[in-house]
Design a protein around this nucleic acid. Sequence first.
RNA 1: GGUGGCGUAGCCAAGUGGUUAGGCAACGGUUUGCAAAACCGUCACACGCGGGUUCGAAUCCCGCCGCCACCUCCA
Length: 575
Amino acid sequence: MSVLKLKNSYTRQIEVFEPLFPGRALMYSCGPTVYSFAHIGNFRSFLFSDVLRRVLERNGYEVRHVMNITDVGHMTEDHLADAQGEDKLAKAARELGSDPFKVAQHFEKAFVEDARALRLKLYLGGEAAEPGQHPRATEHIPEMLAMIQKLLERGYAYIDSAGQVYFEVAKFPEYGQLSGKKVEELEAGARVEVREEKKAPEDFALWKVDAKHLMQWDPHSEKGWRPEDWKRYRELAPGGVDARVRPGFPGWHIECSAMSRAHLGATIDIHTGGEDNMFPHHECEIAQSYGAYGFTVPGPHGAADEHHARKTFARYWLHGRHLLVDNRKMSKRDGTFFTARDLFNPAFNGRADLAARLEALGFKGGRVLPAVLRYALISNQYTQPMNFTLDLLAQAKASVERIQRCFERLREIVGPATDADIEGPAGDRMLSLVDAQERAFDDALNDNLNMPNALAAVFKAVSELNSMELGKAEAVEGLRLLESFDEVLDVLDRRERSGLLTRQEIDARLERPLPEFESLAAAEMDALSVAGFVALRQAARKAKDFKRGDAIRDGLKARGVLIEDTSQGVRWKLE
RNA sequence: GGUGGCGUAGCCAAGUGGUUAGGCAACGGUUUGCAAAACCGUCACACGCGGGUUCGAAUCCCGCCGCCACCUCCA
């Protein structure tokens, strides 16, 4: 198997991935801010990190992946480099008429639902239950305060007269290295407002004081704290934070530094996020972590070897490019803003026009299956901007269905066979196909997650499998190959929800009564009734009454059941 | 204004010096009562424009044009 190479934003080079600890990969991804429903751009970024962790796993690494939930601290009216402005959660709370913690809970729950639907591994299986894998900012105030105290003690931060804490950027000359920004240019841009209390305009808030803010923590009193948090705070910072720091809330960037350290340790292998995170968020994370824990300063761009030889905060920085809709930044006004759930069920989410457009593109009921959205969002390389269109979704649907049909055909060939039924080993042509395409798939993904090339291998395999006459042993190998691809893609529907009806089954079904066809709603379509109508249609066809046969087929199609006649019998499946 | 990036056939999208991906759509054929699926074929001697380097350029260099993002919370 080829070696995994990733593009490190910090060095701007494609580098061989070498973890800090052999066989393990520690990975942190900047997660969602839960003040509204996550949109498809957010999910493209999260899915990029999901594909990366799955590729790491294929390379044999034991992956520990952490993605935070930001439920405090991001502003809406933030033209400033400090934490002026109303908290987004507070704003959502005001609009929804409830308290900000409830709003965060509400949208976090929605996020988890969407994340599961889109098969984010972090939210599937055992990991879903591990809070350390998706830590909440509000539950890590102790870690943040302890870090702020360290920054104060080490001289990287200062306190203003209001009791707020700022990071002093001048103390960290490497600030700007990740994003390629120069502090002088930031000042020249005049978009960083000068605040009297700050020593320099580029200094950023670590702790903010604002009485109007709804989420508050008093660093000097137990009141209002969750008991376990207060206890941990006293353990992490026995003397507490500097007495001049007043009650308030954390700044924008400190949470990720504090939480990645708490759950992954001082040095992590990979830090991912959207390209917009590069500056200032990740730049500030580097500055804070360096200041608080005294890592060796990362080397300059191009000095990859030196950089890796040293102990640092994050060894590889990976950034996903943004998603555009119709070649523009998503815009609610232009109707190009989509949350995941808008696409899953537009009509239910009050977007009848979107439902109609999707229906016209062949989406049954105007609904996009999560697997189709997942495929669409992972189908190009993360280093390229993605231009999302509804047409792209339609193409993704066709692609997923092509893979799915191949999978179902193989499964039919294998049938309920046990090992004893399978004769001999698969043929050489099959074995070399499996070997070559699995390798091509891995090579492409190991080449900085080149998904288009990986998908080329998938479709090459699908074409060949479709054109081969397969015995059970071959089909088993083919299934294994598709399931191997699906460890990364995760778009196959493996449920038994359709199948081939044999002549005997159809005849047997004809003997039993059927519900009234015209009155049967789509939702009532189950395997039994479908089998019944298939039987009716077959009887009509046998009698050469093709008009009636086609009418039944059309009626079933209108209810989301597709009929296919094959040489072995009649196949049906849900659309 | 500063920084980074993009422009490849009807659409999406790999490919960074020489046999050239893959998917979708459309069309033709095989198959089918008709479809669907599948297979075969066509569209495809494609690479924003103009110069240059080279035996050879989508790929390297120079100059344009168009588009996007970031520089401010944002995936």
